[in-house]
């Protein structure tokens, strides 16, 4: 048992306290980010040039190190030329929150450029479909294999060494191969998600299956259950809540493969947006896109957790910790 809530919110009902802390867990990092961005005396290792003055290579909007800026200013003073002016700034890779918020908004409201362009939400939807199909296909094979491997020792020993081996092969390495076999569109991308998820899935689910209380299987056997019905009537329902939780975690895993998956074949989805914006140093757009992925991933997991509590009323571990 951990310590309770601080006195300030101790009088509130527990659900409210939890909600408050959850909000706080997001607000705190945002607060730190705001402070670093808006308080000029915090960090701000650069100077953004406003007036180049007499310095030849300075341009308005350029980011210069403090020391270099001071050195140039000193030289200008000595030479009696116009002094440059500037304001403290953060490096380009740390845009301020309001810029990211604006990028977030404009990202979704800017109509696509050109005829074959797509809206940002269409890119996202495309990415979500890649994940969805990759995960469904992986699960179609991974879940049954995992359950069988966890139930029948022989099968487990037959498949697991190879899968353990394969699991260490980096999924992205199969990119070119996947293109050669599956073409340039969504096929190879889905394949990368499948390769990235499947092997973990088999192992994780086999493990979960093995953790099922053996007494339950024995009880079912003494009640006359045999063969395949042991799996459908006991193993499957017995591990279902844990299987569901595993699948939630594996789905997150699948998301982490999205970025490599979408780099192969034709450029599409949210990855295209992120890499392209990063190439041109539009980091506020990059942050916005990363945050979107976070929101989708976190949001869908929250939904699934809630659904889990409905689906498995007998399983108390589905409840919030």
């Amino acid at each position: 048992m951990s310590l309770g809530f601080p006195a300030a919110i101790a009088h509130l009902p527990e659900s409210r306290q939890r909600a408050l802390l959850a909000v706080g867990s997001f607000l705190l990092p945002i607060l730190v980010w705001c402070m670093i961005s808006y308080l000029p005396f915090l960090w701000h290792p650069k100077v953004m040039v406003e007036e180049p003055g007499g310095v030849g290579y300075f341009q308005a909007g350029m980011l210069i190190d403090h020391a270099d800026f001071a050195e140039q200013a000193r030289q200008m003073r000595e030479q009696g030329l116009a002094l440059p002016s500037g304001i403290p700034a953060n490096p380009i890779y740390l845009p301020a929150p309001h810029l990211v918020a604006k990028a977030f908004y404009t990202g979704f409201t800017t109509p696509p450029q050109g005829r074959d362009g797509v809206w940002l939400h269409e890119s996202l939807w495309h990415s979500i479909q890649i994940i969805f199909w990759g995960f469904v296909i992986s699960s179609l094979f991974g879940v049954p294999l995992g359950i069988l491997g966890g139930t029948y020792t022989v099968l487990g020993r037959l498949q697991e060494p190879f899968i353990e081996f394969f699991r260490y092969l980096p999924a992205p390495a199969f990119g070119a191969l996947a293109v050669a076999v599956l073409g340039i569109y969504d096929g190879p991308k889905i394949a990368i998600i499948v390769i990235g998820t499947f092997f973990q899935q088999v192992l994780v689910i086999a493990n979960t299956t093995r953790k099922l209380e053996i007494t339950l299987i024995e009880a079912a056997r003494t009640l006359g259950t045999r063969g395949a019905r042991l799996i459908t009537k006991v193993v499957l329902p017995g591990i279902l809540p844990d299987l569901y939780r595993d699948q939630r975690i594996l789905l997150g895993w699948a998301w982490t493969y999205l970025i490599v998956a979408e780099l192969i074949g034709t450029s599409s989805g949210i990855t295209w947006y992120i890499t392209q914006q990063a190439r041109y140093q539009h980091f506020e757009n990059v942050y916005a896109a990363i945050i979107i992925i976070g929101i989708i991933g976190f949001g869908s997991d929250l939904l699934l957790a809630r659904l889990g509590r409905r689906l498995f009323p007998w399983d108390r571990t589905q409840e919030r910790k």
Binding site: A176, V179, A180, I184, I264, G265, T266, S267, T275
Partner: peptide
């Protein structure tokens, strides 16, 4: 539309 190296992969694969 590809990433540069992905475009050459696709060409190499005959796609």
């Amino acid at each position: 539309w590809f990433d540069y190296s992905a475009s050459m992969d696709a060409f190499a694969a005959g796609k």
